[in-house]
Design a protein around this nucleic acid. Structure first.
Lengths: 218, 218, 218, 218
DNA sequence: GATGAATGAGTTTTCATTCAT
DNA sequence: AATGAATGAAAACTCATTCAT
């Protein structure tokens, strides 16, 4: 019956259903983000969502299923904010694009503190599936960064170096700030602007004095 | 009686005892490193160490106690390899010191892959105690890096920038490689030399083309 | 939703719940009464109640919690049967009141053999909490007896003596019969009437021949 | 070899052995008396006695064996202090004998506080054997008291009443004071003299004003 | 005899998941 | 669809007893 053409009743019902689902996801997010996967019990989630125990399993197959869904959601969110930076003719200069990207990434992280926590924290012991997805996620970011760097090298903006390693350095830098925002100091209001500029400045130019000292240190 | 000066027997016995302890620690390390804290059960550890259930509790107070001991041990190991780098008159140039340090850190990490895994992974949900120690550990590293950078600025090797943010960038870079070594690709033989040089190159000089292009991009 | 006014369903459910609870309490009572606290395992209780392991913890926080609840219940029961005896103008003569009280106490004890067993037996090693409650319980009974005796002395029914010691004697007598009923001879049908009268006779008049011998012994 | 005629060596050895045994018994007594059977672990006993774990089992078959031995010892001690009171021609008047007996019993109890604690407390859950011995012990005391009362009735000192019940009353009174001394108030120095006299006064004469003098005693 | 490391059966408790109502 | 009582496998930890040295 519900599989017939959707009349008013089923539409309302399925909207209702979607609402419920979202409420549960939100409750779970709060908890996973705050107390980690193992520290969060199904009891906590149903209490948070104000539903009955059985209802939870009407919407999600298992505790790990809802966790994975949240994980995917956040990875999607992050990915969509990173993709979009492309070096190419007719595009703004790469540096401007990068400032913008870093800005957007850090803002996304900040806006989704809790979800990001899921990624930064729980890395292992949640089964091969989680490991695999996180690996893929980071691999895709690495690839993106690397492509950007190589494009930069091709057009002469970026100097020659080991792009594989460099992209890891950049990823590490980004992750550190993700962690800084969500884990280490979640209460303090962070200055995203300052962060983005400083991160970029560091990544683009390094720490050394440009000319004079460069000769002395070698 | 047994509290008298240790004769051959008690010496041998206490050596034996220390051996056992180490065996159990090793078995636990393998398992925690591979499957995480929650994924590892006391049963796994005693199976791994080839001892009886009760024997485990003869040597360690609890599952969390042995985990904390391993954690402390690795943080100690890492700290002792980081401390020692100091900018100052009569010391080798900072860059050389840094190459050396990065090298040593990455080697330590590589030699203690599994232990490092404990630090990189399990970040939350193991109780306030673990959280606190990890926080302290990273804080001490951050302070160390920052001090080094500021010293560098004072003596004119390092250019002016936000040292708080920059030290986080460097820490993030280091952590990324720790993770790279222990989590992401634990089987593949990594080229520590190449890593150390590339990391340093990136951190010191950034990604941009030094001179000519620097004017054009702005 | 379920917190709205209780409809037929929730009323039935909560009645059911109360039933279950009582069933478990009953099973536990039988076992604690028969085999003592340490001799009774949670496994015994769930077997006795015909429930699953987890169900037990749905109704009681722990093994000691259910024991304490039974303990409190019996102390309550006994107390309520003792309180009510008061010497005063317009009240039945103290002796009649006492016969009645002893009767009621022994009947209560008999009706709650198993529960009483808990009090008579387990006196130590169950933690300070149990000790404390038993101490309080007996202290309240002692105080009650003593007050009654002193009131009796005031109105001239009771002769002069050390009421502190005498109340202990009476308490000891009562406890002995509690024990007699529940521990020493739980199967044999006891004659409460005979007991009550004899106990009172003993307590009120002692064992000595009233007149003649009294002169000879002094 | 040790089974040959005891030479100096084996005599010394066996004296030594007896000493050790006693030390262990003493340590166990302290602990059982203070913390109960279940609250006392073999570890506590060997710590208290300053011996090795295995040594304990060289002297006692099991934890319950040493407990039973202590139990027997105390029952023996008490019995030997009660037996000796006999009504008969040529003996001191029963009342004097009783004062003496009560005195001696309470003193014995006081001198052996801890041992008495074993009897007063742990009554159940230690297996049929313990139950049986305690039952026998109390039965023998009851019989003794009853015989004394009946002898008293025969020679006209004691009035007519239900001696079975009365002997229980007296036993209960005695036990209450045993408990008072060892459990309820073990620290406070008790006044054995006052206790003994008051107990006897209560048992012999009860609480009521003696009929004839009920008006005149005041 | 003495030692104490090792044992492992047995205990309590947890918690994700199921299912009758 | 929603409920929440019931489930039971699995986990950590205890402690009396044994046995090789």
């Amino acid at each position: 019956m519900t599989e017939a053409t959707e009349d008013g009743r089923t539409i309302r019902a399925s909207a209702q259903r979607e609402n419920r689902r979202t409420e549960i996801l939100d409750a779970a997010l709060q908890l996973f983000g705050r107390k980690g996967y193992h520290g969060t019990h199904v009891s906590d989630i149903i209490d948070g969502a104000g539903i009955a125990r059985g209802t939870f399993y009407l919407y999600f197959e298992s505790k790990s299923a809802i966790f994975l869904e949240l994980l995917d959601r956040m990875m999607q969110e992050l990915r969509s904010n990173i993709v979009g930076v492309e070096a190419g003719p007719g595009r703004p200069p790469m540096e401007a694009q990068l400032v913008d990207t870093v800005h957007r990434i850090l803002n996304t992280v900040h806006d989704n503190r809790l979800l990001t926590g899921l990624i930064v924290r729980e890395a292992v012991g949640l089964g091969e599936e989680v490991d695999e997805r996180l690996r893929e996620f980071y691999a895709s970011i690495l690839t993106y960064i690397r492509d950007a760097l190589e494009e930069g090298q091709r057009i002469g903006i970026v100097r020659e170096f080991d792009t594989e390693i460099a992209s890891m350095c950049i990823l590490g830098t980004i992750k550190q700030f993700m962690e800084q925002i969500v884990v280490i100091d979640p209460s303090r209001d962070v200055d995203i602007d300052r962060m983005a500029l400083a991160v970029l400045d560091f990544s683009l130019r390094g720490v050394l004095q440009p000319r004079a000292s460069r000769d002395t240190t070698r």
